[in-house]
Nucleic acid binder design. Structure first.
Lengths: 187, 187
DNA sequence: ATTTTTATTTGACAAATGTCAAAACGAGCA
DNA sequence: TGCTCGTTTTGACATTTGTCAAATAAAAAT
């Protein structure tokens, strides 16, 4: 989990004592493969980080599971709307592998944001980065074919293909499993 | 432009003197219909707000214009990646109608963020809201049909259909103009 | 090693959307 | 009024992607 600290530092290097206070607010959590980290309908109180494992965020629409986010080792995850607006989420979060996590509670984060300007700045930059990523994905979804989106994923996150069942990846890309399978067959 | 101030207040009500300093950093700009506000390849230095008029953000891909954002009266616009990361943009921003704008320069905003914790907080919340909107659009694009996306737009922003040519709206929805025309014919 | 379960691929067909070309429409202007 | 330009619609057809059902393949459990 040193990597977590390193990653947080890249957003904004906090001066003491904000740094210690902020870092120690991230608590460890462990989940076994298949367990739910957040069930549907609850408010998601934590901003999470995967130290080791795979976390999947999905929702169900017309009896079908749609993967919204996949977080592998050393990446962040959270139910954006629920965490930011404190409303019950339509998303479910679960562990695809045994997971070692770190997470910070919304209350703690807000308190630290109020207390330390530097934490507020760091968090602002984290949110900015999320926005950036969301925007890139939006553009891809808006004007790339399924094939192009798959190729982009292979390029950007080849490890994901090794560790995540294709059915989940398909809906993450906005297509059905069958279509993904045929795209793969062609290449 | 009083509405701008009111809208900024909803993100976070600033105490003086931050409030005056922040508000007066928003400068007025005027563009005529058809003029470019930001041409392609430049760094987009401003976070903009439309007091009156229509602003369109688009990019060109395979000789085709793809609308990424449409801002009507009383709404914000910016080239997300360029503004946040200070890199040249692939987007172009232009005025679809005569426009009265207000905009704040990145340098000024950052300076105010450094100087006033409260401005930092307000901006953090603005970015959070953008992220939220981006996420909603992402979900729509990922798992709604073109028809559903059009109906959603009619519901959420009926004024847009009156003031923006359908070709632009089509690519904003991620479809071709012909498809949009056929969807409309059915209803 | 065998069975059971889960994940992935394949086939046949349907539905949605894209492409290109042409026609119809509408606003502004001579 | 009639012309011109830009916008919107329509037609014919191609392509992409989805749907449902079944067949394989791979992984997990016994």
């Amino acid at each position: 989990m040193d990597k977590l600290y390193a990653q947080l530092d890249t957003y904004y290097p906090l001066p003491e004592p904000a740094r210690s206070a902020f870092f120690s607010a991230w608590k460890p959590f462990f989940y076994e493969k298949g367990q739910f980290i957040v069930p549907e309908g609850r408010v998601s109180h934590y901003l999470g980080y995967v130290v080791k494992g795979v976390v999947r965020i999905f929702y169900v629409k017309h009896d079908r599971e749609i993967t919204e986010w996949l977080a592998l080792d050393n990446s962040f995850f959270f139910s954006i709307r629920s965490f930011l607006e404190r409303v019950p989420t339509h998303l479910r979060i679960h562990a695809l592998e045994d997971c070692e996590l770190r997470a910070i509670h919304h209350d703690d984060l807000m308190q630290l944001c109020d207390q330390y300007h530097a934490v507020e700045k760091l968090f602002r930059r984290m949110v900015s980065t999320s926005l950036l990523l969301s925007q890139v994905r939006l553009e891809a979804l808006q004007f790339e074919t399924a094939q192009q989106r798959y190729e982009r994923l292979m390029r950007d996150r080849p490890d994901m293909l090794q560790r995540v069942p294709l059915g989940y990846i398909a809906s993450f890309l906005g297509i059905t499993q069958e279509t993904l399978s045929r795209i793969r067959a062609k290449s």
